[in-house]
């Protein structure tokens, strides 16, 4: 399963990231960099979602909430406690992971479909708490003036082009972490759980512990995306932490390809880019996105990267059919 998957391969990824790293050197307008940074942030969230939906087969509808936890943790720690961004970011990731642990401890006591329903509720509750806890989060007013990333190793990361590299590094770390997880002994057990929880259990896999770890990893990645977002945007409101965000990123993931390594980045780049370039689409986003989501799961559930995979697999299969004698 790991070998056949759509993988640009380690070298392919190096080329992708090297090209992305060259972009600021072309001195593009701030608009292009802004789109690039946004794509990287939302792609990270899509990677987080993919660890659940793609690798473990679990639909989590609370991920925007964990994005929010990471974002508000960084926002509050830098703005109110005057922490450095470089300390606040890992702290935000850690807090999100702990939030994932708490969610999992309760949610994984239920079986199957109840998890999706449960996380839908948790997502709304997280947004509600963020919206109502005035003293901590600024409530409805939001959190204004989150300081940008500070200098590290003598480089000032607060400016647009330099912050681009912060987002790029975070995305690279995310892809590395996810790729390693997927190709590991642990990751194979997740795939087994996705394929059938009861079967995985009877095969001797400790399903509960694996799901718990996967959820923590997944929420940690969502928190990382949120933390980068906080420092980049500088303003936090509760609206970004709600189910609409989860829904949008879910669409990115489905377009790109659930369960693939390239899918989250591919889908986010495509869909975010499209939404930004077609202003008309922005106004009627959900009129289009809703049916698109339905059509995707009905006709192209494997997404773009999955389509590529399938074509690749067919070629490999055709080759082996010719060479293997299976009488």
């Amino acid at each position: 399963m790991n070998r056949a998957a759509f993988k640009p391969g380690p070298w392919g990824w190096l080329v992708i990231f090297a090209l992305a790293a060259l972009l600021p050197l072309l001195k593009p307008g701030g608009y292009v960099l802004d789109i690039g940074i946004n794509i990287m942030i939302w792609a990270m969230l899509a990677y987080g979602l993919n660890v659940m939906l793609g690798y473990s087969g679990l639909l989590s509808l609370a991920h925007a909430g964990f994005f929010g936890i990471g974002a508000y943790a960084v926002g509050i720690l830098t703005l109110k406690a005057h922490w450095s961004f470089w300390l606040a970011l890992p702290a935000g990731v850690l807090i999100s992971a702990l939030g994932g642990l708490l969610l999992g401890l309760v949610a994984f006591r239920t079986r199957g479909d109840a998890f999706a329903i449960f996380t839908l509720g948790v997502g709304v509750i997280l947004q509600l708490v963020i919206n109502k806890w005035d003293a901590l989060t600024g409530g409805n007013e939001g959190l204004n003036g989150v300081p940008p990333a500070t200098s590290l190793l003598g480089i000032d990361f607060s400016k647009g082009a330099n912050f681009y590299y912060v987002a790029l590094a975070a995305l690279a770390l995310t892809v590395l972490v996810v790729a390693r997880t997927r190709g590991s002994v642990f990751g194979r057990s997740l795939v087994a759980i996705r394929g059938g929880e009861d079967l995985a259990r009877s095969a001797g896999i400790d399903v509960y512990t694996h799901k718990l770890r996967a959820l923590m990893l997944s929420t940690a990645i969502a928190g990382l995306a949120g933390g980068v977002y906080a420092a980049y945007v500088g303003f936090l409101g509760s609206s970004v932490t709600g189910p609409v965000t989860t829904f949008t990123v879910l669409l990115y993931l489905l377009v790109g390809g659930v369960g693939t390594l390239a899918g989250p980045l591919l889908g986010t780049a495509l869909m975010y880019g499209l939404t930004q370039s077609l202003k008309g689409l922005q106004d009627y986003q959900y009129i289009v996105f809703g049916p698109l989501l339905v059509l995707l799961v009905m006709f192209v559930p494997q997404g773009l990267a999955g389509l590529w995979d399938r074509a690749q697999a067919r070629r490999v299969a055709a080759r082996t059919e010719r060479t293997v004698d299976h009488a």
Partner: peptide, 12 residues
Amino acid sequence: RVRTRAGLLDAL
């Protein structure tokens, strides 16, 4: 799998 112990951290 039940005979192995490598977890998420080992993978990362």
